[in-house]
Simulated assay, not measured.
Amino acid sequence: MRSVELFAGAGGLAIGMGNAGFQHAAVIEWDHYACETFRENQRHHAHAVEGWPVHEVDARTFDFSSLTSDIAVVSGGPPCQPFSMGGKHQAHRDQRDMFPEAVRAVRELMPKAFIFENVKGLMREAFIPYFSYIHLQLQYPQISRKKGEKWIQHRSRLEKHHSSNKNAPTYNVLFNVLNAADFGIPQKRERVFFVGIRSDIGAEWSFPKKTHSEAALLISKWIDGSYWDEHQLDRRRMHKIPNRHARQVQLLSGNADSLELERWRTTRDALLDLPDPEVHPNNGIANHVFTPGARTYVGHTGSALDEPAKTLKAGHHGVPGGENMFVKDDGSIRYFTVREAARLQTFPDEYEFHGSWSQTMRQLGNAVPVRLAEVVAKSVVNSLMKCENNKKPSTRQIVR
């Protein structure tokens, strides 16, 4: 199945889509450094991006009529700064709001499905009116905004159309907040996903179920001690249950249901076989370079090694949020290297990033974790394939 990737950034969602079996007809991204990351990996013949048709353009100028009509899925992460907790909170007033372009792509390509990702902040109470507007536009992309029409007027027109019950939505659209840690990514990263299936397809789909849990991690650390054994660490750590977990551990003790899922993966899991770049600067690993200057301050204390990392941030100025660092076993802190951050975002180790530390960390902070993208994309492709197979006539019917 062929797909189009919008606002591709560093390629996390696009690689996940590729891993799920989609072939990109176009990968669209305006940031030069992100596009150089793609090109550099293509020069190195990195499997993840081999053959990608990369377009370094503003999505607002891209001509979708230049593509063939067999696009099955449109995916992308519209720039999240208008809605992020660390942004300016201007929503539709922010010129970086690219949801109108996401809707335009759906309207002009009419794919079988689409997958869009954004920050959890999009669902904050202050943004609910605009959130509902995005949802309605994705359900009825063919009802476009008229010239000079304000978005609130357009939303009203969409609401009237939706409530009339005369026509079914063009796309059945579901949204949900997914925590990457619940799907085996070593990072607590909550993001909202919009997934739409064209209503005439007749496909049934639901969000994938969680595969990992915090409860299983707590059991492995504070009840059976298997986590410490895996990492060959002193079990005496078991006697230091953090106060915030004590009550939860007590409730989990003897609860067999808590073991149905795999345990959350931790920062230590992700960095396990990487040498300390400060001790081994000539380690020969791409993007694994020590960056000095890490320090803690109020609200920014770094990630704990034995929990999933805190959300990697792209940042608005200088150091990305001051939070892209972790606490070492000796209590000192240091910044994640680009390679370590890539591990937290589940990029393949062969994938290299172009630009300075701040530029590449910005790419990573904006990225969709590859593994999470793959999980969502596979659930969509499986639903579409099942629907297609159900519509095919059986061999017996063909013979007749």
Rank of each mutant, 00 (worst) to 15 (best):
M1T: 03
G9T: 04
G12W: 04
A25Y: 04
D31I: 08
Y33Q: 03
Y33D: 07
C35W: 04
E36S: 09
Q42V: 00
R43D: 01
H47I: 03
D58S: 01
T61H: 00
S66E: 04
L67N: 00
Q81C: 00
M85F: 02
G87E: 05
R96H: 06
F99K: 08
A105G: 12
A105F: 06
F114W: 02
E117F: 02
I128K: 02
P129F: 14
S132Q: 10
K150N: 14
N176T: 12
F183C: 11
Q187A: 09
K188N: 06
F193D: 00
F194A: 01
D200A: 00
A203V: 10
A203N: 09
H212D: 08
A215K: 10
W228A: 05
Q232H: 15
Q232F: 15
R247N: 09
H280I: 13
H280T: 15
P281D: 13
N282S: 14
N287Y: 10
N287T: 14
T291D: 11
T291E: 15
H300C: 14
T301W: 12
L305I: 06
D306R: 08
K310T: 09
T311V: 11
M325I: 03
F326P: 02
V327W: 05
D329L: 10
Y335W: 14
V338K: 04
R343Y: 15
G355S: 06
W357G: 14
W357S: 14
V370L: 04
R371N: 08
V380Y: 02
M385T: 13
N389M: 15
N389Q: 14
N390Q: 13
